[in-house]
Design a protein around this nucleic acid. Structure first.
Lengths: 130, 130
DNA sequence: CGGAATCCAAGATGATACTG
DNA sequence: CAGTATCATCTTGGATTCCG
């Protein structure tokens, strides 16, 4: 139990273009990664369940994102060898932790949407945002 | 204190395709949005400073992302009317809050990168991930 | 049902050049 | 310095089709 360095100030690392964390961060914060990880926070679910639960996701991106998350060690894929294929996805301990953080973020945004829309004013200079 | 329904179930909202939160979430979790918000957590900074600080970002995406974040009420743009243009960007109170959450997420990922790489195994079936 | 493969459209991203 | 405009490219995302 070699403890981890406390204030290890890894922060500077993240800003480096070559920081490996960026890849993981990219998967986690990808369009569907966030929603999927939050969704899986409710417990193991099947492919079809997830597709219905996360509105707007296509089968392709669902599969793709699940692979990313599986590779990163956040999601576990459990295939039951039964007649009608049955595959479940569930969070790993690592996944539970990110899921909590993402849920916190997502819920905060939902709850403060009003304040954002109120504060929303046209950009000072120009350029349009989606 | 059941005044604030714990199960305020805004969660289901997020999974809805038409949930307005998705737009904000998209900006916040965009490739550069995360890094920029975390970077601005260190205090107000100028355009050039941010560009140098966040490795790999192009001027275009820096400007673009700043506009998104300004529109969403997370960032304040302060232009000083001086000879050599001087513009500073700083977080709004709202921005400070997301910044904290994103920093938490980013730092957690950095600190657990080892565990992820260790857990990383090829996907059970196929498909390649970035 | 749970994918895999393919084709395609749209948006994100980058490099570069130009301006106030 | 702080952008803006343009063009080229890469990736994301979607629809469809096929398979075990």
């Amino acid at each position: 139990m070699n403890d981890t360095p406390p204030g290890h100030a890894l922060r500077g690392d993240l800003f480096s273009e070559s920081c490996p964390s960026r890849e993981v961060l990219k998967h986690v914060t990808s369009r569907w990664g966030v929603l999927l990880l939050v969704a899986l926070g409710d417990g193991a679910q099947r492919f079809g369940e997830l597709r219905r639960k996360v509105g707007g996701i296509s089968e392709k991106m669902l599969a793709q994102t699940l692979v990313w998350l599986e590779q990163d060690g956040f999601v576990l894929r459990i295939a039951h060898p039964v007649a009608p294929p049955r595959v479940e996805y569930r969070l790993t301990p690592l996944g539970e932790e990110v899921s909590r953080r993402l849920k916190d973020l997502a819920l905060w945004i939902e709850e403060n949407l009003g304040a954002m829309l109120a504060a929303r004013r046209p950009p000072s200079h120009a350029l349009q945002g989606s």
